[in-house]
Write a protein that binds this DNA or RNA. Structure first.
Lengths: 139, 139
DNA sequence: CGCAATCATTCACGGCCTGCACGACCGGGG
DNA sequence: CCCCGGTCGTGCAGGCCGTGAATGATTGCG
């Protein structure tokens, strides 16, 4: 089993579960962090667009946004041009929450880097960047 | 979000889902493949040990083994030394099934490598190897 | 001015995995 | 020799997550 995709899946799922457990204190899941990330990096015009970017059903965006809105991390604002759409705006508390979540991930990174030569760690980071950017620039 | 762990989780979960969908024809899930993999690479003395290696509950091993046994991919053999234990033996059809699953993963790899410089692909593979071996040699 | 299409939301359902309870089985101590 | 605590595999019920279909509001096209 020298395939990259399979091992990437295995490690990724494990890492996701681990990150989720570490995120329990913040009462967040990795999906929430992903949503905050997208909002910070590029923003989005509608929840539909977010669903497409995250690769999940629109109804899930509703739940994620609900939870984040309760915490005051995001604001739903009706698009005046098209009142069907809701744009999600990242608030200051949302930024702080994202920073806290990033801090948790950074600590996980240290543990991960402990069993990895620095050069490979950097190479891994670069490869993930390329794959992630490639996935987002598809459409 | 420059953290490796977070992006590894994102991509890994997506890759796992993608692999799962491609595996539908074989009526397998990635977890089944992981189980077959462990049996092929190192074997195990008991289902408990497998649960530990895969990081899942023992009761899940039962379900996975049930499914694989129905397909004739593995055989349950009582350990004569300790009749509580069941050793899972990989059969020839199990080997073929694993080969087919690996083939599916290999095709996914090609698609993955399309958006990645060959050097980074190799580096990614090496890094995943280190992390996976590190995780298995913990105990 | 309808009318089909689009967006957000709700809700019921299905799948996956876990935790617990149970029976079979082991090894040691009285 | 026989309990008795501990271990292993298994069955079962429950919880969580995410999806898909139905609903209502809103849009722009014909």
């Amino acid at each position: 089993m020298g395939t990259v995709s399979f091992r990437l899946g295995l490690l990724g799922v494990a890492q996701d579960a681990l990150y989720a457990s570490r995120l329990a204190d913040l009462d967040l899941k990795p999906k929430h962090v992903a949503l905050l990330c997208v909002l910070r990096l590029r923003g989005a015009e509608s929840q539909m667009e977010l669903a497409g970017l995250l690769g999940v059903a629109p109804s899930l965006i509703v739940l994620l946004a609900d939870h984040l809105e309760e915490r005051g991390a995001v604001q739903r604002v009706r698009d005046p041009a098209d009142r069907r759409r809701q744009s999600l705006r990242l608030t200051d508390t949302g930024l702080h929450l994202l920073a806290a979540a990033t801090e948790v991930a950074a600590q996980l990174d240290e543990e991960l880097a402990a069993g990895l030569p620095p050069a490979e760690h950097a190479a891994l980071s670069a490869a993930l960047d390329h794959l992630l950017n490639g996935a987002l620039e598809r459409p």
